[in-house]
Amino acid sequence: MTISALTKVSEQLCFGGKQIRFTHTSTALSCDMQFSVFLPPQAEKQAVPALYWLSGLTCTDENFSAKAGAQRIAAELGIALIMPDTSPRGDGVPDDADGAYDFGLGAGFYVNATREPFAKHYRMYDYIVNELPQLLEAALPLSDKRAISGHSMGGHGALVIGLRNPQRYSSISAFSPICNPVNCPWGIKAFSGYLGDDKSQWKQYDASLLLSSAESPLPLLVDQGTADSFYPEQLRTDSLITAAKQSAAPAEIRLQAGYDHSYYFIASFIEQHLRFHAKYLIDKICRDA
């Protein structure tokens, strides 16, 4: 793929770097997609590593770029930020029949759907793991060094994708992730709708189940607010803590007193997450040089 596969929608100067929005036609999702990229100033002279950020229910590619305040530290560290949308969109893309917020448009759950009518378009797992990095690393000054992070549904996606593809990422982090979707209302609804009733297929998208049996998991940082209205019923952080102990994973799972599920929480700790990833992204670059 080449730069001609991307259409630039907007570009702003930001902390010496560039905040850019693109559209393109996705093969994996069979529709047009939009995403945002922050290129740090270092990208003017060299290929830079990238942090992929996966957003949560009802979000688009713009929530993180506008609310998290991540660009300042990313510019300092020389890390690109890749912010995809949360689901396929457009004419012909099926939605929840009742227009619910937690299924369908804006709620792709980062799985490859196998149940109709969603199987053609809802393949966010393949899009994030394969198509988007291949496109961007061919078109933009990005190295093949990647980390992955996300919030809520996107935290679930980041954990699952990082755990299933340790060769593709240096580190994983998450804010308020859905840790055990096979055992929470959000996950049960999404997996039933996208994957059907065969619960053996659900397990490949459950971070707690994956982590409990992981042999060489990546470094992991998770923050969960104790005032989060979705904690613990929907997020099941306890299951992830148990899984990390079972696998002796290099995981730090922190309960942050008084914080909720909002972007104020993310903005409070995003610098720590970026510096956490930089230890592995930048160190890996130096080791590979």
Rank of each mutant, 00 (worst) to 15 (best):
G154I: 08
N130G: 14
D96T: 08
S36W: 00
Y205S: 03
Q46Y: 08
F22C: 12
E252V: 10
S192N: 13
D32F: 14
S10L: 06
G150F: 00
L159A: 03
F22T: 14
R168K: 09
Q42T: 09
L195F: 04
Q46W: 08
L136Y: 03
R254M: 13
H277E: 15
R236M: 10
F103N: 08
A75P: 01
K67M: 15
A100C: 15
D238N: 15
Q234F: 06
F35D: 02
K203W: 12
A74E: 01
A251C: 07
L13I: 08
Y110Q: 03
Y263G: 10
D283C: 07
D85S: 11
H121V: 12
F103M: 09
K245D: 15
K199I: 10
H121R: 07
T226I: 11
H151C: 09
L105V: 14
P219G: 07
E116W: 09
D102G: 12
A278N: 09
V111P: 02
A107P: 05
G157K: 01
P84D: 10
E44W: 06
I20N: 02
V182M: 07
S36F: 02
E252Q: 13
E76M: 04
S26R: 00
R72E: 14
N180Y: 11
S208M: 03
I178S: 02
I128F: 10
I266V: 13
G187W: 01
S262E: 01
H24A: 11
N112C: 07
Y205C: 09
Y127V: 10
Y101V: 10
R123S: 03
A80I: 01
T27K: 11
L255E: 07
R287W: 12
P166F: 03
Y52T: 15
K145N: 15
T242S: 06
A70E: 13
K67C: 08
Y205V: 14
D102H: 06
C179S: 14
E233M: 05
V37Q: 13
K199Q: 04
A68I: 10
W202M: 12
P117D: 14
S10E: 12
G258Q: 11
V111I: 11
K203C: 09
A249Y: 06
G16E: 05
D91L: 14
I148S: 00
Q201G: 15
A174P: 02
M83L: 05
P177H: 08
K245I: 04
D98C: 05
C179N: 05
P219E: 12
A289F: 07
F15W: 13
I270V: 15
A107V: 06
Q167G: 06
F22L: 00
D197S: 08
L221T: 02
S216G: 05
M124G: 08
Q71I: 11
H273M: 09
T7D: 05
T27Y: 09
T237S: 14
E137G: 07
E137W: 01
G225L: 02
G154A: 07
A289Q: 15
A68W: 01
I20G: 03
L142R: 02
L235P: 00
F109N: 08
P219A: 13
A97G: 06
Y280F: 07
S173E: 01
E116V: 05
F230I: 03
G104F: 00
Y259L: 10
A50K: 00
R164C: 07
A80M: 01
G155Q: 06
K203R: 15
S239I: 04
A257V: 09
S247K: 14
A119Q: 04
I253K: 02
Q42H: 12
A70V: 03
I285W: 09
R287L: 11
F269L: 10
P177F: 09
A74L: 06
